[in-house]
Measured scan of single mutants.
Amino acid sequence: FDIYVVTADYLPLGAEQDAITLREGQYVEVLDAAHPLRWLVRTKPTKSSPSRQGWVSPAYLDRRL
């Protein structure tokens, strides 16, 4: 999967189903980028939180090589 970094805090609107909150600087794996406005991502697990999966706007993501 492609690795992206979150460029700004992402707080989903209440109406968005299956969306997750992301923090600036967080790394995520993009699982599904087929839709231009919503990408399915999975967060990297940390010592304090397990990995999470949900939909985010790709405008908040920047690809890492």
Rank of each mutant, 00 (worst) to 15 (best):
K47I: 11
P45F: 05
S51L: 06
I3V: 12
L13R: 11
L61F: 03
A15K: 08
W39R: 00
L40Y: 10
D18R: 05
G54E: 04
P50T: 07
Y27R: 06
V41W: 01
K44C: 15
T21Q: 12
Y4K: 01
Q53E: 12
R52V: 15
V5G: 02
L40M: 05
L37D: 15
E29D: 06
A34L: 09
Q26I: 05
R64N: 11
G54V: 11
Y27V: 13
Y27M: 11
H35L: 07
D32A: 05
V41C: 03
V41H: 01
D2Q: 12
Y60P: 01
D62K: 15
Y60M: 05
G25R: 02
R63P: 10
A59V: 11
G25H: 03
E29V: 10
R52S: 10
Q17M: 12
I3F: 08
L31F: 02
R64K: 12
V30T: 02
V41I: 08
D62M: 14
E24K: 15
W55I: 03
L13C: 12
Q53R: 07
Y10M: 04
R63F: 15
A8Q: 13
V6A: 07
I3P: 03
L65T: 14
R64P: 15
D32P: 00
K44T: 12
P58V: 05
D62R: 15
R23D: 06
S51C: 06
V30C: 03
I3G: 04
G54Y: 10
L65V: 14
L22M: 04
V41Y: 01
L22V: 05
P45Y: 06
D62P: 02
V5T: 05
Y60S: 04
S57G: 03
R38S: 07
T43Q: 02
A59D: 12
R38M: 09
K47V: 12
A33Y: 11
I20M: 08
V5C: 07
D18G: 14
K47D: 15
W39Q: 00
W55M: 04
L11A: 11
L31Y: 02
I3H: 05
A8F: 07
W55Q: 02
K47Y: 10
A59G: 07
L37A: 10
G25A: 02
I20K: 02
Q17V: 14
Q17K: 14
L37N: 13
Y60A: 05
R23C: 11
L65F: 14
D9R: 05
H35G: 10
R42A: 05
L13M: 13
S51Y: 07
F1R: 10
R23H: 12
S51E: 07
P50F: 05
A19Q: 10
P36R: 06
L31W: 03
W39E: 00
L65S: 13
P12C: 06
V28K: 00
Q26M: 12
T43P: 02
R52A: 11
I3N: 04
A19S: 12
R52N: 08
D18N: 09
A34T: 15
G25E: 01
K47F: 11
S49I: 10
V6W: 01
Y10F: 10
D32K: 04
L37K: 09
T7Y: 03
A33M: 14
L40R: 04
L11E: 14
D2F: 14
L37E: 14
A59F: 09
L37Q: 10
Y27N: 04
A19P: 06
L13V: 12
S48G: 14
F1C: 13
Q53K: 08
S51W: 07
L37P: 04
R38T: 05
R38I: 06
F1V: 08
P12A: 09
W39M: 01
T46G: 08
V56C: 07
L13N: 14
V28L: 03
Q26S: 06
T7I: 15
T7E: 02
Y4W: 13
V56Q: 01
W55V: 03
V30S: 01
W39G: 00
E16C: 09
A15Q: 13
D18I: 04
Y60N: 07
L61Y: 00
P50D: 08
L31T: 02
A19I: 06
G25S: 02
A19L: 07
G54Q: 04
L40Q: 03
L11N: 14
V5L: 09
A33W: 09
V30E: 00
Y60Q: 03
R64D: 13
Q17T: 14
P12D: 06
G14I: 12
T46A: 06
K44L: 15
V6M: 03
G25D: 02
D62A: 15
S48R: 08
L40A: 01
T46I: 05
W39A: 00
S57P: 15
D32S: 08
A33L: 05
L37T: 11
Y4M: 05
R52I: 15
S51V: 10
A8R: 15
L11Q: 12
K44F: 15
S57A: 07
L61P: 00
V5H: 04
Y27C: 10
P12V: 08
R42T: 03
G14S: 13
H35K: 05
G25I: 01
R42N: 02
L40D: 00
V6E: 00
S49M: 12
R23F: 14
E29T: 08
G54H: 05
R52M: 14
G25F: 03
A34H: 13
V28P: 00
T21L: 11
R38E: 03
S48P: 04
W55F: 08
V6Y: 01
P45R: 08
T46F: 08
L31I: 12
Q26G: 03
T21Y: 13
A15V: 12
K44H: 12
I3D: 05
W39S: 00
R38Y: 08
G25L: 02
